[in-house]
Design a protein around this nucleic acid. Structure first.
Length: 530
RNA sequence: GGCGCAUUAGUCUAGCGGCCUAGGACAUCGCCCUCUCAAGGCGGGAGCACGGGUUCGAACCCCGUAUGCGCCA
């Protein structure tokens, strides 16, 4: 331990009781800090992401997790995952599992938390309830909290009265002024009560937000908020602060919807005699209508985007850039580059509107950059999901799949689009889209075109793109039609639609057999319908 | 109602007093390439919320106003 500068103390890791396998990293870099009795403490960075398992991991939550993770990685600190499941009504194990899966999918592994353990467990708040009760009781004993016997109805009535008289509607601290005798009477009668924090009445609470700068709040705006409800359950503020203190968090990186809550929590940290962490409030993520991102805006969970065929690296890149930038031009970052460059100081102060278009563009760009073999592997689950292939098929056709990739790679914006784009390869017969038939097959010369094309395919030798292309390119002048007419007619006959991968390569990949079969089938269909 | 935070094109952003006749990207529009669709290339339109100051000089500093959002209830 050494003292450096005015009222700044560097604290060795052991002093804080941190004994885990991060110790080596931790000792190497000491960037974190908090305040303890007004003294600035510098120690290893410890941050947490603390989702409530009431649904899938939300885009907004994912971004908060990413910023926490990047910050921890950049600083060589510890990233803790804590599940805030104090609401038994809405918390489920399925949601917890889904959140863990989404975090892992994006590569946001945690150093401590569910399934990996750590020195500060349990990492579920439902397993820590006793500590909240104890904290509340300690505060009670120290005179820093008090029992409040006001009922919900009384509070409601007084709030309305205050509002109609133009007074602030907060709790009037009535029970804080109870005499010892009154307290004893209520206690003996075992009247239901909440436990409220006895917040300071004067002075001010100040802190430095790592994103927004120095902030000062007069303590007069603080209220004596509830810590423990009548049923003994902790409020968000109590549980969160007690855990953050117990888990030795050095930085709280979270959404700025909590900004106004921060002075309230700082007062609690101080009342508990705990180190006050540093804070960094991230701007919120909005939907396109400038409202909180919700179901109305379409897919809002990471899970949904995974299913739609988005790549985790695109997701990470896009979400990080929604509220953070390195400079005026860099758009693409590998995970390592993000870790190397990420700092809270360059996080934007403005809320960001989630733009699915830009995500899609970025995803397409990442797909194009993928190693073809890698892309092939990533496409398999989507083809399987659509029922086009199965495991057995994969075992025998890996080579074919690798030949397909170059035809689709620069056309895919999401992995799931492979089904639409290349599904015709796998179907036994082609169903021709009526609109495509009208546009490409209704021309008088089409039967002749298809017959000629069939002959080209039957005789192309060797059977490969170049010979097929040469043969088909001979047809337009011979038949006296435009090239486009020939190619579109053949395309529709083979794929059923007006849009497909490049024609000649498609024919090669389809094979002589299936190509001629399809051309003949289309011819037959034309004859019967005329 | 109180307190707080924010405000660069439709969207994400660069900018931290002269490098800005404001840079990049998505989207959009036009052209080129072209067997369709993509991808790619070239080009266009579009922005400092408003009003006062400070300064030789303001997107940038200060003060108001407006708007949006958050928290408390």
């Amino acid at each position: 331990m050494c003292v450096s500068g005015r009222s700044t103390i560097r604290v060795a890791v052991a002093l804080l009781g941190v004994k885990d396998n991060n110790e080596r990293r931790v000792c190497a870099r000491m960037h974190g800090y908090g305040t303890y009795g007004g003294i600035r403490i510098v120690t290893a960075v410890r941050v947490r992401f603390a989702p409530s398992p009431t649904g899938h991991l939300h885009i907004g939550g994912a971004r908060t997790a990413i910023y926490n993770w990047l910050f921890a990685q950049h600083e060589g600190g510890t990233f803790v995952l804590r599940i805030d499941d104090t609401d038994p009504e809405r918390s489920t194990e399925e949601h917890t599992a889904s959140i863990l899966a989404s975090l892992r999918w994006m590569g946001l592994d945690w150093d401590e938390g569910p399934e990996v353990g750590g020195a500060f467990g349990p990492y579920f708040q439902s397993g820590r309830l006793d500590s909240y009760t104890k904290a509340a009781e300690d505060l009670l004993a120290a005179g820093k909290a008090y029992r409040c016997y006001c009922t919900a109805e009384e509070l409601e009535r007084r709030r309305e009265a205050a509002l109609s008289e133009g007074r602030p509607p907060g709790y009037d601290r009535r029970c804080r002024r109870l005499s010892d005798r009154e307290r004893a009477v209520n206690q003996d009668a075992r009247r239901a009560c909440t436990i409220r924090l006895a917040a300071p009445l004067t002075g001010e609470t100040r802190f430095t937000d790592l994103v927004r700068g120095d902030l000062v709040f007069p303590n007069s705006v603080l209220d004596d908020y509830v810590l423990l409800r009548t049923d003994g359950t902790p409020t968000y503020n109590l549980a969160s602060v007690v855990d953050d203190a117990a888990m030795r968090m050095t930085h709280i990186v979270r959404g700025d919807d909590h900004l106004s809550n921060t002075p309230r929590q700082i007062v609690l940290f101080e009342a508990l005699g705990a180190m006050v962490p540093a804070f960094a409030h991230m701007p919120l993520t909005w939907g396109t209508d400038r409202k909180r991102l919700s179901k109305r805006h379409g897919a809002t969970s990471v899970e949904a985007y995974r299913k739609m065929g988005y790549l985790p690296e695109a997701m990470l890149n896009y979400l990080t850039l929604l509220g953070w930038s390195l400079d005026d031009k860099t758009t693409f970052f590998t995970r390592e580059e993000l870790v190397r460059h990420f700092t809270l100081g360059r996080v934007s102060k403005n809320p960001g509107i989630f733009d699915p278009d830009k995500l899609e563009w970025m995803n397409g760009s990442y797909i194009r950059e993928l190693d073809p073999a890698d892309l092939a592997g990533r496409l398999v689950p989507f083809l399987e999901e659509a029922g086009l292939i199965d495991e057995d098929w994969c075992r025998h056709n890996r080579g074919w799949l690798h030949r397909l990739v170059p035809l689709v790679q620069e056309r895919l914006k999401t992995l799931a689009e492979i089904v639409d784009l290349a599904g015709f390869f796998f179907a036994p017969t082609v169903t021709i889209d009526p609109e495509a038939a009208t546009k490409a097959l209704s021309i008088e010369e089409v039967p002749a075109i298809l017959e000629a094309a069939c002959e080209v395919v039957e005789t192309a030798e060797p059977f490969e793109t170049s010979t097929i292309e040469a043969g088909l390119r001979d047809l337009p002048p011979k038949l006296g039609v435009k090239p486009k007419v020939v190619f579109q007619a053949v395309r529709v006959a083979l794929t059923g639609r007006l849009v497909s991968p490049p024609l000649f390569e498609t024919i090669e990949l389809l094979g002589r057999e299936r190509t001629t079969t399809r051309l003949k089938a289309a011819l037959e269909q034309l004859r019967t319908s005329r």
